[in-house]
């Protein structure tokens, strides 16, 4: 199957696998863990995984991950439907308030028409839903060449940049 993961504006292979139990997961692999499983035994996951990532749902509060953000290489935020906008706030909180610097990946009902907004709030990777034209979707990252608001990609609002 064709890759559906966009990283750094390019199609990429997904090297991560979902894991639910550190004793069962392959040691040294890139493991993606739910927030609840992570919080239950963070050290066990850190010891076991090659790199560790946490999968967030729109109802999850990202503040709970704060102690480990520097050790996480991936956080995914699920969009159960593209019209569920909670993940946009989660992304900004992770990037702007909690200083998360690893990969932030949008997953779920993700397709071309959301990519521009998603990239502005701090997502740098997008796992497209099945059946999407990935090259066409990448072009949507350039839909708009300017934006008014404060965002992760442009921390100064347009009105401050207009002064310069």
């Amino acid at each position: 199957m064709a890759s559906r993961l966009i990283q750094n504006r390019q199609l990429s292979e997904d090297t991560w696998q979902v894991a639910t139990d550190p004793t069962q997961a392959p040691a040294g692999a890139n493991l993606l863990i739910s927030l609840a499983d992570w919080l239950a035994q963070p050290q066990a996951w850190l010891d076991h995984a090659g790199r560790a990532g946490v999968a967030l749902q729109p109802t999850d509060d990202p503040v709970g991950l704060q102690p480990w953000l520097a050790q996480l290489a991936l956080i995914t935020v699920n969009f159960p439907a593209f019209t569920d906008g909670r993940g946009y706030s989660i992304a900004r909180l992770l990037r702007e308030r909690h200083g998360y610097a690893g990969q932030l990946r949008a997953v779920g009902d993700v397709f071309k028409d959301q990519l521009f907004y998603l990239s502005r709030v701090g997502f740098d990777a997008f796992l497209l839903r099945e059946g999407e034209d990935a090259q066409d979707a990448i072009s949507a990252l350039d839909t708009f060449t300017e934006a008014y608001q404060v965002s992760v990609d442009r921390p100064e609002p347009l009105f401050r940049r207009r002064l310069g």
């Binding site: 593209f82 019209t83 569920d84 906008g85 946009y88 706030s89 900004r92 521009f116 907004y117 998603l118 502005r120 709030v121 708009f144 934006a147 008014y148 608001q149 965002s151 347009l158 009105f159």
Partner: peptide, 13 residues
Amino acid sequence: RQWSTFHPEFAFL
């Protein structure tokens, strides 16, 4: 108007 136009966080309220 400018702040709300394509506000990336609040497009899917």
